[in-house]
Amino acid sequence: MANATQTPQLSGVVGFFNDAHVLIEATKKVRDQNYQFFDCFTPYPVHGLEAAQGLKRSPLPFVTFVAGLTGGTLGYLFQYWTSAVDWPINVGGKPFHSGPAFIPITFELTVLFAALSTVGAMFLLNGLPNTRRKSVDPSVTCDRFAIVIERPPVVAEDDEKGQAKQAKYKRFDEAEAKGLLEKLGASEVRSVYAEGWF
């Protein structure tokens, strides 16, 4: 590790909470501050948190729908091609193109495409597998809730578009963010440094 001796880079500040309700209220306040990046970590799904964070609905169901339709259509067409076009075989005196016989496989392929695409899209949308970051603290998988306010990446002075984008959000200041989390009832507040996964 060449960088080990250098000062680790600040990636944000974290505030820990002991209660899901306090977390939700604090999250709403943090959202109102208009930081560019912040996230919550909880040991179990907390209902209403995504609304407090102001998260938009995931496009995942749309992926499932389109993939399901695709799988079903391809499944049916493939059976039609194999049974009626490429290699017609008389099965039980039924017509080569026998719709009812194709339905179970059509259904299965609908489910298969939908399911695999959903899992794949879920990984993609969540940025998984994640080799970039470590968990903020092991306790968020056990008994504590956390809000992390992240430091946005440094944008070069001459990058006008990047600068304009960051100007739309509240400027990140380590001390100020820490103060905010303390004020919102965090039981512990500390800075987070980039460590990477390995």
């Binding site: 039980g92 005196g93 009812p100 016989a101």
Partner: peptide, 12 residues
């Protein structure tokens, strides 16, 4: 509904 139909259709 389909299961009932398909079994009867298949067995004929």
């Amino acid at each position: 509904g389909f299961s009932q139909f398909m079994l009867i259709w298949y067995a004929n």
